[in-house]
């Protein structure tokens, strides 16, 4: 595929940096700031693009893991249908990324709805399950967006490539 997505992003970044940027007056602060963020966003996107499918599948796996644990804890069938829908989306190579994401979102919504129905005893156990099971998806997302520069100690987050193999 010529030009591929990476090449297209590469040329856009180059054009913005080398041709558009210098043409913006120094006192146009809003335009300067938005160009800076546009370039940064495109840079983050370019690094993410080749791994997007694996990343979405990994987050889906995390959502299924949590739903499985809560299902076992509560003996509820409330998550069965959304779990099966997500599993089906993951098993079908013709499904687009956004379809997998929609199925994951539906499972996340159902998981939250289930937690809200729990009585005090189960709720306390469910909190601990959620807190522990959230560690991996949060770290994956921190690593995914590490290029944003928002981590105060970025070296403490494992590389996304490592986390996608975990």
């Amino acid at each position: 595929m010529v030009p591929d997505s990476d090449l297209q992003l590469q040329v856009v970044i180059k054009a913005l940096r080398e041709a558009v940027g210098p043409a913006i007056r120094a006192d146009e602060k809003v335009a300067q700031e938005q160009l800076h963020l546009s370039l940064a966003t495109l840079g983050v996107l370019r690094s993410q693009l080749p791994m997007t499918r694996r990343f979405i599948r990994a987050l889906s796996s995390d959502a299924l893991d949590l739903a499985g644990k809560l299902g076992a804890l509560t003996s509820s069938q409330a998550l069965s249908a959304p779990r099966e829908a997500l599993e089906a989306a993951l098993a079908d190579p013709s499904r687009e990324n956004h379809e997998i994401e929609a199925a994951r979102s539906a499972l996340m919504d159902s998981t939250c709805a289930l937690i809200e129905t729990l009585g005090p005893d189960l709720a306390d156990q469910a909190r601990r399950v959620v807190i522990d099971a959230s560690a991996m998806p949060i770290e994956r997302q921190r690593a995914w967006f590490i290029g944003s520069g928002f981590e105060s100690a970025p070296d403490k987050v494992r590389p996304i490539e490592t986390l996608l193999e975990a």
């Binding site: 949590l66 994951r104 979102s105 539906a106 996340m108 919504d109 998981t111 939250c112 709805a113 937690i115 809200e116 709720a123 469910a126 909190r127 959620v130 807190i131 099971a133 959230s134 949060i138």
Partner: peptide
């Protein structure tokens, strides 16, 4: 966009 179980737990 979608709900987050950690947010539900935190609110409770």
């Amino acid at each position: 966009a979608h709900d987050e179980p950690l947010m539900t737990v935190a609110y409770d």
